[in-house]
């Protein structure tokens, strides 16, 4: 999906501002959003890709201004509503109630500490596939040149580009399918290396390259005479 989340290569964001953040969550609500997201896996949504896609559907201005956990909050609320886990009426009522009595949630009893780990196993993304990998290490491949209307893990900056397979990773759930409900479809995953000149032309920095983890269905062999760079 061509939206603002696909940030690779976009211009205009200025210098990086390195921060030396302390370990962990800076605010409790960040942890609350995090915990709610993982607790809702399996009820409000069926895969991490579906959650990522919900974040990608946030409007572009909100995506850039709400911050990382704000994006998670938006994606989570979207999925809680779409799965009919919660209604917007009860959320707005509860927000008003919390707003009028903003005391932090009372101390809570501790829960089983391995609950989170169990949820994680449910979201295991490995999907062994029976087919032989179509590509081998060292082979030159070209990425799909067209955009996707749904979720995909092929960034726009690497569309229609020629690269070299540098690693094979076996079968993994195809995000393009699992974000939209099919969590069973596996696909071979490869690491593909792209030279900066292929990605950015003369603007590319010499002696640099970018490696992406891409699914077999994103890749094809170069057509006869098709040579980039």
């Amino acid at each position: 999906m061509d939206s603002i989340h696909d940030l690779g290569g976009k211009l205009g964001f200025g210098e990086v501002a390195p921060t030396n953040d302390p370990v962990g969550f800076l605010e409790r609500w960040h942890g609350a959003v995090f915990a709610m997201t993982f607790s809702s896996g399996g009820t409000a949504f069926g895969s991490g890709d579906q959650f990522r896609h919900a974040i990608e559907r946030i409007d572009p201005v909100g995506y850039l201004t709400h911050g990382y956990y704000g994006r998670w909050l938006g994606g989570l609320e979207t999925l809680l509503l779409e799965s009919e886990t919660l209604t917007s009426t009860e959320i707005e009522e509860k927000v008003r109630q919390v707003d009028s009595d903003p005391a932090p949630a009372a101390a809570r009893p501790s829960a089983t500490p391995d609950r989170f780990t169990e949820k994680y196993r449910d979201l295991d993304a490995r999907r062994p596939v029976d087919t032989v990998p179509r590509f081998q290490e060292g082979q030159v491949v070209v990425t799909r040149s067209t955009p996707s209307i749904g979720h995909t893990r092929l960034p726009a900056y690497a569309r229609g580009k020629q690269g070299t397979i540098v690693a094979l990773h076996g079968g993994w759930v195809l995000p393009d399918a699992s974000a939209h409900g099919n969590v069973d479809r596996g696909d071979h995953l490869y690491t593909v290396a792209f030279d900066s000149g292929e990605l950015w032309g003369e603007a590319g920095e010499p002696g640099t390259s970018t490696r992406l983890d891409l699914f077999e269905s994103y890749l094809h062999l170069p057509a006869q005479g098709e040579a980039h760079g």
């Binding site: 609350a32 609320e77 959320i91 509860k94 919390v98």
Partner: peptide
């Protein structure tokens, strides 16, 4: 955002 997160958490 914190209020909204707290509301979701309580629900």
């Amino acid at each position: 955002q914190a209020l909204r997160a707290q509301a979701l958490e309580e629900l």
